[in-house]
Design a protein around this nucleic acid. Sequence first.
DNA 1: TATGAATGAGCGTTCATTCAT
DNA 2: TATGAATGAACGCTCATTCAT
Lengths: 191, 191, 191, 191
Amino acid sequence: MARAKQLRSLKTRERLLGSAREFVSDVGFEELRIEDLVSTVGVAKGTFFAHFKDKDSLMDILIAERINALLDDMETVHNFDSVEHVVASIMPLLMFISSERYVFDIFLRLSGALAVEEIGKIAETIYRYDCILIDRLKSGPFRQDISAELLSEGIQAFSVSSIALSLCALHSEQNLENRLVIQLNAWMCPS
Amino acid sequence: MARAKQLRSLKTRERLLGSAREFVSDVGFEELRIEDLVSTVGVAKGTFFAHFKDKDSLMDILIAERINALLDDMETVHNFDSVEHVVASIMPLLMFISSERYVFDIFLRLSGALAVEEIGKIAETIYRYDCILIDRLKSGPFRQDISAELLSEGIQAFSVSSIALSLCALHSEQNLENRLVIQLNAWMCPS
Amino acid sequence: MARAKQLRSLKTRERLLGSAREFVSDVGFEELRIEDLVSTVGVAKGTFFAHFKDKDSLMDILIAERINALLDDMETVHNFDSVEHVVASIMPLLMFISSERYVFDIFLRLSGALAVEEIGKIAETIYRYDCILIDRLKSGPFRQDISAELLSEGIQAFSVSSIALSLCALHSEQNLENRLVIQLNAWMCPS
Amino acid sequence: MARAKQLRSLKTRERLLGSAREFVSDVGFEELRIEDLVSTVGVAKGTFFAHFKDKDSLMDILIAERINALLDDMETVHNFDSVEHVVASIMPLLMFISSERYVFDIFLRLSGALAVEEIGKIAETIYRYDCILIDRLKSGPFRQDISAELLSEGIQAFSVSSIALSLCALHSEQNLENRLVIQLNAWMCPS
DNA sequence: TATGAATGAGCGTTCATTCAT
DNA sequence: TATGAATGAACGCTCATTCAT
């Protein structure tokens, strides 16, 4: 009963996702229009909503994909040898999330699980990100008086805070990185 | 004559603000509609926009008012004798900002100055908040290896991060406070 | 083998009908959704349309069933001894048809034969209703200057008209019965 | 405060109505599309909904207009000298209402007042129709044992019933008129 | 017979904001 | 300053029906 689904359905879904990816790289996340999407793919609007609950749900998937790609890169780094190293490793991720206010908004909205049973894709990446960080932090040259888990929480808090600031007119990308290095040094290597 | 006009103008503005405050306390910030507001006050829509640049601008004022009232309370505390004390002092503020996702969104958007010349009201409260914190932190029993300014930045980062989490379904208010105590202990009193 | 298939087919049809009856008694005719129906029964949407021409066709069957049950009751009355008696006898039927605007709509749409060859179930009940009425009217204490057939037409006209009115907000069930007694007295017993 | 409305607003409303009338005469009531309407008139969709509650509300106005025009004609007849005369007088109206099933549906739905305070336009025409009928019936050569009001109710009941039948495939316009003459003779001139 | 993905086309909605008067 | 009509553009929705497998 849940069998014959795969072939056509999956293909349609992939076509929608593929086209959506193109739109995003062309005009950005915020400018993606469902209407354009379905007309480009050549399916009915109803078909879109049969595959995705709503626009946010599509965004959740697309943004999570990008985050996961960045996490893949991050995972190739097996050790953090300094705070600067940590910051350099997570900067691509922060750059992406702060690339559009819209992306940051979606990220903030969907980063927490809406309900236990329906963990979104972005929420999953947060978890994965946390795991990666924690693993690398355990063996790093950082303070040992608190757990790696807590250490990770702090990194995320300072990251979000920095992104929020960077989305205001006065604060540039360079400032973001500098500020973060200072803050994380104070957080991770108190003298 | 010009004076009289100014007076009337001020009165209209005040009536709009007063009515807006009532709407907010009745239905919350998010549910405030310009349309309802002007029809209650008895002026035209255009009049609203003659007095306020846009809806955000009104929200900026209303939310800043509330924050300032909470900061007034906070100012009556002249010393922080522990991290718990810090958390207890700032909790009312955090509760307010996390009371509605909409308030948090506005807060995040307007907390940074949009441009040097047009510092918003919320941005001013952030500055004031920062000053209050820094002042109290200087004399508190906290780590001395970093500046009070940096200490304050961390408090704000953990606060924002905690609020964001608390706005997700899985995280309650109690958790917010507990989590914050743990985090700020690690931040402010590294052993 | 063909028999077995036929049996299974009949069973599916019966299951669909049975489940539909439950839905109707739970949520009413209008709220019945084919989607809910098939998922409850555990068959695909297409299967429904293999058994029923369209949704109206199912409704035709379900509504006709109910009407026939009410006609069964009506048939136990063998004589009409007054207009009040007539009205009391047909009231259950009118109550059912006016129970939902949707039922009335379907009834109106399907009460006339769409084409000679495809007389619907409801159309058949109309015919049966007419026969019952005509039979009872022949021996009743009613005007004799016109045929029982015409008498019956009038009863139906006044009935439909009364139902239409009762489906408007201002008119209640009680009014329906009162109005009908007055009208039918004038129709059936002109002095 | 309710002053400056008239000029532009009324003109826009008239343009919408005028264009709607054209659409209706071109493609019929059912085929009128709000989207086509606003794009033809050159206003935004929001403008339509600022002037009319919904599509039904527009239909109510358009159909009521037509009915009123037919009632204007009917009003030029000051006496009914026979049942045939009555039928001939109301036939244009019946023809219009039965011209599209959609029109009949709207008519049935909106002919009753939804609530005391919001009498629709069609409901008003029904009232007007009733008044006209009653007035002419008083002096006609019809039965005197019942009130003109009741007489009118019967005419309307037989009319609606006849229209409903005529909208079924088997029944033509000619039949409608013939049937009605027979029925109304029995109703209005019982021997 | 059975499947279930896809269709389709329009409606109503939203409401801050603008602009001609 | 004040007015208020008009804008706008996309979203979500609906859900019976079809059709290729």
